[in-house]
């Protein structure tokens, strides 16, 4: 039997994690779609008498998904639940994979399906509340929806990191850490690279043709890092945190 992954053992773990998390997932879906259905009564008044499903879908996807991901390893915040979770005979890799499948792929599939099923109801509510409302219907395969799903796929990893490394109030703490790191990053950028953008250096850079192709290249590299490296990096940090967890 493989020490890191064995399918039948993983399947058992997935069943356990699914049963433990199904109520929270269903409640999250219900609350988000409920808010959206009720929200359609007021939304046309606020937004040019228009309902753009893809945008609403994206809000719900991120908010619900990040809440669920922050709860992924909630057992670890409680020492009684924590020792049971850590001594359950499954590998750290299987435990991570199971949670990732449920909170990332699982959430994307369940939420997209639920939204697709509920969108006619949302449309009906909107039409009943305002006959002149314009509805941009929901297409799960539209470019915007696919892009939102791709962003969720990448960014969700941050909340898995928070779920393993932080104890209690994971979502606010993760968001706070993100803001803090964001400010820190900007500060470092300003302190070290800000000077480079000053007149003399700027002039020098202009002279050596630090121009649009160079900036484009930088953007492409950063985008490539974001799409291909960011999520795996988060998964590795989550894995290491889970492996080194003590109760």
């Amino acid at each position: 039997m493989n020490k890191h992954f064995h399918f039948s053992r993983f399947w058992l773990l997935l069943k356990v994690d699914f049963l433990k998390g199904q109520r929270a997932t269903l409640m999250t879906v219900a609350v988000i779609l409920g808010i959206m259905t009720i929200g359609t009564v007021v939304e046309p008044l606020l937004d040019d008498n228009k309902i753009i499903h893809a945008e609403n879908f994206a809000y719900g996807l991120f908010i619900g998904g990040f809440i669920l991901s922050s709860q992924a390893f909630s057992s670890l915040s409680n020492s009684l639940k924590g020792f049971q979770y850590l001594t359950l005979p499954a590998s750290t890799f299987e435990k991570l994979l199971s949670m990732w499948l449920l909170t990332c792929i699982g959430w994307m599939v369940v939420y997209t399906l639920a939204y697709w099923v509920c969108s006619p109801l949302i449309n009906l509510t909107a039409q009943l509340s305002s006959s002149s409302v314009v509805i941009v219907s929901f297409n799960p395969f539209s470019g915007f929806v696919i892009l939102a799903l791709k962003f969720y796929f990448v960014l969700q990893g941050i909340f898995l990191v928070g779920a393993v490394h932080l104890k209690g109030y994971v979502l606010p703490k993760t968001l706070f850490a993100l803001v803090l790191y964001g400010i820190l990053g900007m500060l470092i950028f300003y302190l070290f690279l800000g000077d480079m953008m000053n007149s003399e250096v700027e002039q020098a850079l202009a002279d050596i043709n630090f121009s649009i192709p160079t900036l484009d290249l930088l953007r492409i590299v950063l985008e490539w890092i974001f799409w291909w490296f960011f999520a795996p990096l988060c998964w590795i940090i989550t894995f290491l945190g889970l492996k080194e967890k003590e109760v």
């Binding site: 039997m1 020490k3 409680n78 639940k81 001594t87 005979p89 499954a90 590998s91 492996k243």
Partner: peptide, 17 residues
């Protein structure tokens, strides 16, 4: 914490969930 180890060790603590 290998699965093969965890299969062979069971801990029943005083307080539990």
């Amino acid at each position: 914490r290998r699965p093969q180890f965890l299969q062979e060790v069971y801990l029943a603590t005083e307080e539990f969930y």
